Simulated assay, not measured.
Amino acid sequence: MVRLNVFLLLAVVFCGLGAVTSQHKARKLFQALEVELERARQLEVEFGQLQLELSTWGSAPRIEKIAREKLKMRSPESEKIIPGTATGARTP
Rank of each mutant, 00 (worst) to 15 (best):
R3D: 11
V6N: 03
V6Q: 06
F7I: 03
F7T: 05
L8E: 15
L9M: 08
V12L: 14
F14T: 09
C15K: 04
C15T: 14
C15M: 12
G18Y: 06
A19W: 15
V20R: 07
S22A: 08
Q23H: 05
Q23A: 09
Q23L: 07
H24Y: 11
R27F: 10
K28I: 11
L29F: 03
L29Q: 12
L29D: 09
A32D: 14
L33M: 09
E34I: 07
E34R: 12
E34W: 07
E34C: 06
L37Q: 13
R39A: 13
R39V: 09
A40Q: 13
V45R: 04
E46Y: 02
Q49A: 02
Q49P: 00
Q49E: 13
Q51W: 00
Q51V: 09
L52I: 06
E53S: 07
L54G: 02
S55N: 14
W57F: 12
W57Q: 09
S59R: 01
A60W: 08
I63Q: 07
K65W: 13
I66H: 10
A67R: 11
E69D: 15
E69T: 14
E69P: 03
K70Q: 14
K70I: 10
K70H: 12
L71H: 04
K72M: 04
K72V: 04
K72F: 08
P76Q: 03
S78V: 11
E79V: 07
E79N: 04
K80Q: 14
K80G: 04
K80W: 15
K80F: 15
I81L: 11
I82K: 09
I82P: 02
G84P: 03
T87H: 10
T87R: 10
A89I: 11
